[in-house]
Computed example of a mutant assay.
Amino acid sequence: MSETAGIVGSGADSQDTSTSESNKAARKRRRKEPPPEPTPLPGLVDAHTHLAACGGRDPDTVRAILDRAERAGVGQVVTVADDMIDARWALEASRWDHRAFAAVALHPTHAAELDDAAKSELEQMVADPRVVAVGETGLDHYWPSRSDSCATPAVQAEAFRWHIDLAKRIGKPLMIHNREADDDLLAVLAAEGAPDTVIMHCFSGDRTVAQECVERGYVLSFAGTVSFANAAELRFAAELVPDEQILVETDAPFLTPHPYRGQPNQSYCLPYTARALAEVRGVDDATMARILGDNARRVYRLPLQ
């Protein structure tokens, strides 16, 4: 009897394991599947995406990504660079399709690469009319203790100050990356004197930081994180931002909004986040899209469509 019980128990265990593996495989497949196309929400601009990381490596694939975005109501995008190779590519992509614009800089994790040659090349790039912002630059205090290749906080701060000066000299918006560095980042901006337009890309701070940024006149750009179940404080922040100081972005291929968190993101998914912001702010979807799109076109000085 005990042997029979043991055999039955083993069979049950095997069945449970098989089911568990099947569920894991299903979750893995879902993570690779792109979200369905949303109901279109016309007038939107993706204020920050990474076309190359989304698979757009040539004119045809960029066109396909932007065609899909346009069907969802996203008429223009700003594709953003992390390093010099990415900066060259972003500028090239902005010339392939009239709906794409570029932002170029060295990401704070790559700040150690900001030598004289990189500075000279970036200065040339930002003068191009297809480049609409200096970014993303800023401070990242998360990665230095986790990656040997990440620039130290001191090197990041030095590079950040140079990018601030560049944005002021060229007269274009400064696009900020901030990860776990609220106080230090705001202190550097105050000490250096911020450009006329500062965009807090993928804002992730609490309501106190949001209020400080609003009072300084900065623009806060919200990504899919604002829709996450554990982002109540971020939603408080999104609620208090004045209409004229709010943007929406994908940061694609990352930060896909709920209920598709963890799946591949692209600009066509932007309406999901825009609708989440509309709900947070208590306005209808069309009004929210108009506010977000008008702000992006004004901030980046994009041509009207």
Rank of each mutant, 00 (worst) to 15 (best):
A25D: 15
A26L: 15
A26C: 00
R27C: 10
K32Y: 09
P34V: 14
T39N: 08
P42A: 11
L44E: 09
V45L: 03
H48F: 09
H50R: 03
L51Q: 01
A52R: 15
A52Y: 11
A53D: 11
C54G: 07
C54I: 01
G55P: 07
G56C: 05
G56K: 04
P59F: 06
T61A: 14
V62C: 08
R63Y: 00
R63I: 00
A64M: 10
I65T: 04
I65Q: 15
D67C: 03
A69E: 04
R71L: 12
A72W: 06
A72T: 12
V74K: 09
G75S: 15
G75F: 00
V78M: 03
V78Q: 05
T79N: 08
A81L: 02
D82E: 09
D83C: 06
M84R: 02
I85H: 13
I85F: 00
R88F: 04
W89E: 09
W89V: 02
A90K: 11
E92F: 01
E92Q: 15
A93W: 03
A93R: 06
S94P: 05
R95F: 00
D97A: 08
A100R: 02
F101E: 07
F101I: 00
A105Y: 10
L106T: 01
H107T: 08
T109V: 15
T109R: 05
T109N: 14
H110S: 09
A111W: 01
E113G: 04
E113S: 15
L114M: 07
L114E: 01
M125E: 07
D128P: 09
D128T: 12
P129Y: 09
V131H: 01
V131R: 04
V131T: 05
V132Q: 05
V134D: 04
T137A: 14
G138D: 07
L139K: 15
D140I: 13
D140L: 10
